[in-house]
Simulated assay, not measured.
Amino acid sequence: MIEAAMIWNEPNNKSHWDPEIDPDWSRFAHMAKLAADAIRDVNPGLTRVLGGISPIDPGFIGLMKSYGVLDHVDAVAAHGFPLDWNLWQIQEWPRRVEELRAVTDLPIWISEVGVSTFGAEEVQLWGLKKTAELLKGRVERIQWYSLYDLPSAWPATTRHKEAEGSSYYRHFYMGLLREDGSPKLALEEFARHTPEIGLVQWFHFEDPGLDEAVSWMKRLGVTHLRTGLSWADRFRPNALAWFDRQMGALEEFDVTVTFCFTPEHRGLAPHHTSAPIVPEEFADFCAEMTARYAPGSSSLDDLSRSPVCSSRQMLSMSLPIQPRE
Rank of each mutant, 00 (worst) to 15 (best):
P11I: 09
D244F: 05
E112G: 00
P195D: 11
A191N: 10
P183F: 13
D105H: 02
A291Y: 09
R236F: 12
S167N: 15
L46D: 04
I90Y: 06
L319S: 05
E280Y: 10
W216L: 00
T158D: 06
E280S: 12
D37A: 14
A269Y: 13
K136R: 13
P19Q: 06
P155E: 15
L34Q: 10
E189T: 14
F172Y: 15
M6H: 04
T157Y: 02
R292C: 05
D254M: 03
L300N: 01
E112K: 02
L199N: 03
I90M: 10
E98Y: 00
G209L: 12
T273W: 11
I61C: 08
D18Y: 06
L125D: 14
W88Q: 04
R234N: 15
V123R: 12
L250K: 00
P19D: 03
P237A: 04
D207L: 06
P151C: 12
Q246M: 12
L106G: 01
S166W: 12
L46V: 12
E264C: 09
E206Y: 13
H272K: 13
E212Y: 11
E288T: 14
G165F: 08
F81K: 07
V123E: 15
F243S: 06
S111G: 11
C286K: 02
A275M: 03
R40D: 14
P279V: 06
P19S: 09
L250S: 04
V123M: 11
G119K: 09
D22P: 02
R138S: 13
H160D: 05
F259S: 03
A38E: 11
G221S: 07
G59P: 04
R266V: 11
G175S: 08
G209Y: 12
A120E: 15
R170H: 10
R40A: 15
L70I: 11
D254T: 00
V115M: 08
I56H: 00
G221D: 11
A4H: 06
L300G: 01
S310G: 11
A156V: 13
S152M: 14
L150E: 07
R292S: 03
I277H: 00
Y293T: 03
V103D: 07
F203L: 00
P279Y: 12
F261Y: 14
W17Y: 13
M317D: 00
A213T: 13
H79I: 01
M317W: 07
A120Q: 14
P55C: 06
V257C: 06
W126G: 03
G165Q: 10
E133A: 14
Y67T: 03
D211G: 05
S66K: 08
P263R: 05
I108S: 04
W242F: 05
E10F: 04
L50H: 11
S116T: 10
P276L: 09
R245C: 06
E133T: 08
S182Y: 02
F172A: 06
G52S: 08
S310L: 05
G221N: 10
H204N: 13
L240M: 10
